[in-house]
Amino acid sequence: MRITAAQRTENENRIRAAMDRLLRGELPPGGKCDIKTLAREAAVDRTAFYGNRPYSHLRDEFEQRLQSLHDAGDIPDPRDAQVARLKAEVAKLKERLAKSEQAIDELTDFRTEALARLAAQHEEIVHLRQTAAAASRVARLPAARSSTTVIGSCS
């Protein structure tokens, strides 16, 4: 069915008005900032936006305007904005996780090295004690006695 020039102009005006509303973020319940919602809001068949159909130039215009908004960081669809925000947050959390894992690896290596050093020092102490016990020229000091008297107090 053919439409008249007046009907086509009226349809284009409705499409442009719906396009402006969607790009401002005024989305209908359950709608997105896409061609399907644009067609529904303008009361035009969605297939009229594709191929050599009469409103394909308006689809191109809509997609270009939407892309320029995205490039400028302004996302009219709150769900798309939420997805972009969550993707950025996930990237940041992945970076934090990688840094935490690196710190844990470094601390684990430090702990392993510290334990190895302590074990080596313990072995050295045990060896020195055995050497000292075996040597006859080393005299043992008597064990310290615990004293219960307090040494000199001034009054």
Rank of each mutant, 00 (worst) to 15 (best):
R46S: 03
V83I: 14
A6R: 06
V138H: 08
L115F: 12
E113R: 10
A139M: 05
A88H: 07
N11S: 10
L23Q: 03
R46M: 10
E26S: 10
R129I: 00
G51F: 06
I35D: 07
T149F: 08
A81S: 07
A48T: 13
E26M: 11
A81P: 04
G25M: 03
L23Y: 07
A132D: 02
Y50G: 02
E61Q: 06
D34I: 09
L22W: 07
P76E: 06
Q82I: 06
S153K: 15
L97D: 06
A134F: 02
N52C: 04
R137C: 07
E61P: 08
E106N: 02
Y50S: 07
V83H: 06
D105F: 05
T4E: 09
R79Q: 15
A5K: 14
Q121H: 05
E95W: 01
K94G: 03
A39N: 07
E89M: 10
F49W: 01
T47F: 09
S100I: 11
A143K: 10
V150E: 13
R145Q: 08
A132F: 02
V44L: 11
D80S: 10
A42G: 12
G73A: 08
T108I: 08
L141F: 05
N13F: 04
S56P: 01
I104Y: 14
R137N: 10
D80I: 00
L66I: 04
E61T: 09
R14P: 00
G30W: 00
V126E: 06
D74M: 06
F62M: 08
L141C: 04
E89H: 04
Q7D: 10
G51P: 03
R85F: 10
K99L: 15
A5N: 02
P29C: 02
T112H: 09
L115P: 00
I35M: 10
A98M: 11
Q64L: 10
Q130C: 01
F110D: 11
E12M: 07
N52Q: 12
Q67A: 15
A116F: 00
L97Y: 06
S136M: 00
A144E: 01
I75Q: 04
R21D: 14
D77N: 15
R46C: 14
A114L: 14
T131D: 09
L23E: 01
G25H: 05
V90C: 11
Q121C: 00
E10A: 13
R53H: 07
R53S: 12
I35T: 13
A114H: 03
A6Y: 09
R24E: 14
I15K: 13
S68N: 07
A134H: 03
A120V: 05
R65K: 12
C33E: 05
R24Y: 01
F49G: 10
P142G: 07
L86R: 13
F62K: 13
R40D: 09
R59V: 05
A133G: 02
C33T: 11
A143M: 04
E95Q: 15
S155A: 14
A143R: 08
P78W: 09
D45E: 14
R140W: 02
R140M: 03
N13G: 07
L23M: 07
H70L: 15
R2D: 12
S146E: 14
L38K: 01
A43R: 15
H122W: 04
R140F: 03
R24M: 09
L23R: 07
T9S: 11
V126S: 06
H127L: 05
E41F: 10
L86F: 05
R111L: 04
